[in-house]
Design a protein around this nucleic acid. Structure first.
Length: 491
RNA sequence: CGGGGUGUAGCGUAGCCCGGUAUCGCGUCUGCUUUGGGAGCAGAAGGUCGUCAGUUCGAAUCUGGCCACCCCGACCA
């Protein structure tokens, strides 16, 4: 077994798969297209969950839980939504197995136990939730309903990739109901801002905020907002979506309320979601050929201390000096691991913690004890320096913040270096092969969008919220356009 | 669902063309020496060669079926 990872530049997919496995984040399971998230990977996800959940609470939302199964009749109620997901649904048709009379020790599906009505395993929960909201909402006094659910969903994709697209995945889905269109639109926008803030402040991943085109819109939504991030291979990754549902689901499930004025009207809805795909974004945005690079705010361990010693006496001497420093670090809320496992040598540990993305490593041996110094190494830029022991805890505390910033800045610079204004079709075809975001004029037609996708595999990632008005001509059709949109190849 | 590939110890592999019960590395275990960038030496354990059938005195190897996984498409909010 080779000790290093494959090189990012040689085969990005292979590098990604190896990194996910070697850093102990996840592995493929025996179940087709499904993934086992391992404890280390899950502890990162938990940090994401907690941060997002706090942000949802701050914006007035509460958590609830709805069933995994959606009766087919409910699922098909909102036609566009049902149609959009129909091709990727797992369906429960029976509720019992029995011994196979022809094959001892084996089981078969009991044909007697066929369900009257099939149950769809939720690919998303709008149907089951809106069918419930119908019973919860009568009056304007019942609104708004601001609920989030943490759940697993199943989408039977033909091809899967760890974290980015798995058959079953974990996510959160917010489902809100409002008395006015304006309020629902404001909610849609607000939650997009929450996702963008989370991506940038916690994950250190800069994102573009924008509208999806009609082609890329959520099935059943009036408008889909999204955040799009750039990975290190120049491809785009949709990291979160927020949908304005209009009155579509309210109409499909007959959810009406009586207003102050006594008028009966359908409620206005939103839904928004982000998934374990964020883990994929985190990995692909920052990591390098040595392994994972984690932003301090999401790192399960902030600092690892590796003692370098011979024999118990030296170890005790190191401990005597390091324990007070660890105490101080802990008092700042920093998670520190002191790795005195004698089974591995220092070099091995260095490589292992780099693979796992621990932001800061400190090494301390006899040499340092004598000089009153300690070695501090940064994972993000791989620099090492020797610091005086005195005041090192405060230094580390500040350094973690600096690393959080530095990773963001690096990713932002990368995105800017790989974002191009493209005005001709020849340039487009050339640049799309090299990757990156292409800012282009587009005539606004689905036909053009589809043609470009067919020819180049590039899709419109979003129409940026802050796109400036600028007269131009469509990069493909030459028809007039008023603003630039973002084209890229995507995961 | 199309096109290609792979299946041999926990992981990665050699052997297959040309049939004779399996190679090497990593990891694991034991012991000693080591410890400032993935330690060294010595010894040991670990295998229904994906599966079912066929050919053969004899199959990891040849033939056929099946299964699983990977890659490229199609698909994908």
């Amino acid at each position: 077994m080779s000790k290093g990872l494959p090189k990012r530049s040689e085969n990005y997919s292979e590098w990604y798969n190896e990194l996910v496995k070697r850093a102990d984040l996840a592995e493929n399971s025996a179940v087709r297209g499904c993934m086992v998230i391992k404890p280390y990977g899950y502890s990162i996800w938990e940090k994401m969950q907690r941060a997002l959940d706090d942000m949802f609470k701050e914006t007035g939302h509460t958590n609830a839980y709805f069933p995994l199964f959606v009766p087919k009749s409910l699922f098909e109620a909102e036609e566009k939504n049902a149609e959009g997901f129909a091709k990727e649904c797992a369906v429960v048709t029976h509720y019992r197995l029995k011994a196979d009379p022809n094959n001892k020790g084996k089981l078969i599906v009991d044909p007697e136990a066929k369900l009257e009505e099939e149950l769809v395993v939720r690919p998303t929960s709008e149907a089951i939730i809106w069918s419930t909201y119908k019973n919860w909402i009568q009056s304007y006094r019942d609104l708004p309903i601001l609920i989030n659910q943490w759940a697993n969903v199943v989408r039977w994709e033909m091809r899967t990739r760890m974290f980015l697209r798995t058959t079953e995945f974990l996510w959160q889905e917010g489902h809100t109901a409002h008395s006015t269109e304006q309020e629902a639109l404001a909610e849609t926008k607000q939650m997009l801002e929450v996702y963008a803030k989370f991506a940038e402040e916690w994950m250190s991943v800069p994102v573009l905020k924008g509208f999806k085109t009609a082609n890329e819109r959520f099935a059943g939504a009036e408008e889909t907002l999204c955040i799009e991030a750039m990975m290190q291979d120049g491809k785009a990754l949709q990291a979160g979506t927020s949908h304005f549902l209009g009155q579509n689901f309210a109409k499909a499930f007959d959810v009406k309320f009586q207003s102050k004025e006594g008028k009966l009207d359908h409620v206005w809805g939103t839904s928004w979601g982000a998934s374990t795909r964020l883990m994929g974004a985190l990995i692909m945005a920052h990591s390098d050929d040595l392994g994972l690079v984690l932003p301090p705010k999401l790192a399960p361990i902030h600092v690892v201390i590796v003692p370098i010693y011979k024999g118990d006496e030296e170890l005790e001497a190191i401990k005597a000096v390091i324990l007070p420093i660890m105490q101080e670090l802990k008092s700042y809320g920093i998670v520190v691991k002191f790795d005195d496992n004698d089974a591995f040598r220092p070099g091995y540990k260095f490589a292992e913690y780099e693979l796992k993305g621990v932001p800061i490593r400190m090494a301390i041996g006899m040499r340092d004890l004598a000089s009153g110094q300690i070695e501090v190494a940064r994972r993000d830029n791989l620099t090492k320096e020797t610091r005086p022991m005195e005041g090192v805890a405060v230094y580390i505390k500040d350094l973690l913040n600096e690393i959080q910033e530095a990773i963001y800045t690096k990713a932002l610079n990368f995105r800017e270096e790989n974002t191009f204004k493209i005005d001709t079709w020849d340039e487009f075809k050339e640049q799309i092969e090299k990757g990156g975001f292409l800012l282009c004029h587009w005539d606004g037609s689905s036909e053009t969008e589809e043609k470009i996708k067919e020819l180049t595999k590039a899709t419109i990632r979003c129409i940026p919220l802050d796109a400036a008005d600028e007269a131009g001509t469509c990069v493909y059709s030459g028809n007039p356009s008023t603003k630039r949109v973002v084209f890229a190849r995507a995961y």
